[in-house]
Design a protein around this nucleic acid. Structure first.
Lengths: 224, 224, 224, 224
DNA sequence: CATGAATGAGGCTTCATTCAT
DNA sequence: AATGAATGAAGCCTCATTCAT
């Protein structure tokens, strides 16, 4: 509706020359901008998860988002920034997902809560989860490439490390292993379950397996 | 060094184009071909490990191998086949490395032998190992991509699965977990150690940590 | 400042959409239109002088003018017409600047007056002057491009040609040289002084040098 | 002729396995490379002169040179380097053209020789000359842009400045004018003649007009 | 009309592959 | 066969222009 000629209330005479109040229009614009931005991010996220970083062309992202190629560049300066934004949003969502788990005070229970949260997240955001996994690989290779660059460790990884460390100090976990290595081991177990789940088709809910992981992690694989 | 071909005596310049009997020449040819092929594979392997799949250009491979770009295409039909050949050779070397471990009859001892062999291999072929890790990530994403394609599971992975299965049946490992998941967990632990080792700079010998892994795998991380 | 439009009294919010009688409103409209148009031209002029033709983007012009990109297209059909309009306005201003000089009847005095006017103009409108110089180069190359296109010779150039011609016929200037070439020579001298002035930083008033130019033009560079 | 099977002289048995002697082949390659490079430079030169810097697309250069787009990038890293190379070759040719004039010891005669050389050059290389002129404009605008950048003054300009300076010190040219301004004035005169010549169609030989220029420069335009 | 984001044609550049020598 | 330059398809990005609000 471009021209609602009658302005019944006309709240403020000063702005009466504008058909739509500036504030409302700005709000609309803002919403539209966010919608576009999100659509692009969503499209990129899906493609990144499905095809990987190198196979994700800007034009494909634009098409998937239902916009023109140039539009993408109105929201992101370039490919790198777009992908980075996807990763960041991914990290943010993961961090948000993790938040409730972090309030658990007992370290072992917190570990379990973390894993449960993670898997709940994966159940709801398979694509994001796949990106995260890819990026983990990317991360470790980058590490090999520029061994001195920034750490950029995942929020989740950090949480695991801290919690494992705490559990070791509280005597709940064995003390004869570098906490970094131990938390890495837990990460490896988590990823193994994730991969296993993917290979199974990703149908069954993953969250149920959190206790499985911790069972293995805590008790080991030997016959009890 | 693509040209180790020794030129025997070369009796007379006039007949030099037919110095060698046909059979011997064929043999020489064969050797030369193999030498070229290997040089190219070696170069590709190094670059793949160092720069990754997407950053490894055919011209760079050629240069690193000391041949012309076109030559690469005399030995491989294209980039994909070349990289595939590198991966295959990598898998073969891994399989060969694994062979002695497989002769161990007791499954638990065999598991430890496998891990030890793996880490010995990594100590000696860091580049190959890095490729393998990269490819693992690649593999799992590919899996997602063409979920119905070839299995292409690693020899090592197969060995682990079979051995874990055997150990479960012999009662050495807990029976309440899918053998695929259990062996995947072991793989995850192995990779976690590998990554940890990479992050530490990859200096210390990795083989020493085989027992560490199995300790965690068997006993778990809880305080004994 | 595209909006100098003073809003008279604005008697009642309810009738605010019809504050002004139609004729007055038309007048206002006209003024507003001109104000916008001028703002855009001014912005374009500044950017053209500063960044050059190829580096001057429509969006930058709009921003500098304080309007939206699309608005520019309400006043000019496109980039070419806008730039052409800038050039035309530039030519017009030059012509206006030149007017007083043209009333001088003696050709030699008129030449000096023209040069003086030119330099006064440059002193006051450095940007326009720079555009004019740029366009001179552009012009001569365009000439080469579509050798048959419009003449589009500058008003100043025309004035110089006519005056030089007159001076030749009056015997004040040598007759053995094509008047076009002779006036071109004077133009060249003028431009040389302008460039020299630019390279010196463009600080000192340029108008003082008018007599220098005419000295060289009339007497030549040899020791008197 | 790819396979001249008979190698009559066979100078050195060691290289007999190569059909074509390495040196000869290298020579051929070198020649071909130079031919390509020159073809590209020539094409770029023509387009730069005809269409200008901003209108000269890489693909057009390639097409004009009769090569594929990518080929251009085998010889120049990018557009900037290509254009720079054209300009450099242009400068070099100009410098070479100027060389004989510089051996003249008397400054006034040298000035005339320089102008004559310049015009001879223009007669033979109209395109290069046009590029030079464009670049002069470009140069002076660049100057305005980054007023502090490198000087990058033309060899010709330098020669003129030095010679004019010398002529002033020898008393042949008036001393009451900044030598830079005086040589600039001469440059302006030269360019004016060049432009005039272009506008006349560039048919008549330009070199004949060298004396005209110096006449004006030395004696001025007033009736003698 | 003003707005300013969407559009998409078009430019520059890269690199896997081919091919004449 | 080896060579290495030529090729051109394809990707990223810019920016003049359009158009819904």
């Amino acid at each position: 509706m471009p021209k609602p000629a009658s302005q019944p209330p006309a709240p403020s005479p000063a702005t009466s020359s504008r058909r739509t109040p500036a504030r409302a229009r700005g709000h609309l614009r803002q919403k539209l901008k966010t919608a576009y931005r999100d659509a692009i991010l969503d499209a990129a996220e899906g493609l990144l998860a499905r095809r990987g970083f190198e196979e994700t062309k800007m034009s494909a992202v634009a098409e998937a988002a239902g916009v023109a190629t140039g539009t993408v560049y109105n929201y992101f300066t370039g490919q790198e920034e777009l992908f980075e934004a996807v990763m960041e949003r991914c990290r943010d969502k993961m961090a948000a997902t993790l938040a409730p788990a972090m309030s658990e005070s007992d370290p072992m229970r917190r570990l379990k809560a973390i894993v449960t949260c993670l898997f709940k997240f994966v159940d709801g955001h398979r694509e994001l989860a796949m990106i995260r996994q890819r990026n983990a690989a990317r991360g470790s290779t980058r590490l090999a490439r520029h061994e001195d660059e920034e750490e950029a460790v995942d929020h989740v990884t950090k949480a695991l490390i801290a919690t494992v460390d705490e559990a070791q100090q509280s005597g709940a976990l064995r003390n004869d292993i570098d906490p970094l290595l131990l938390s890495g081991s837990l990460s490896g177990l988590i990823e193994a379950h994730f991969v296993h789940w993917l290979q199974r088709g990703g149908d069954a809910p993953l969250a149920d397996q959190a206790s499985n992981i911790l069972k293995i992690f805590q008790e080991g694989a030997s016959t009890p």
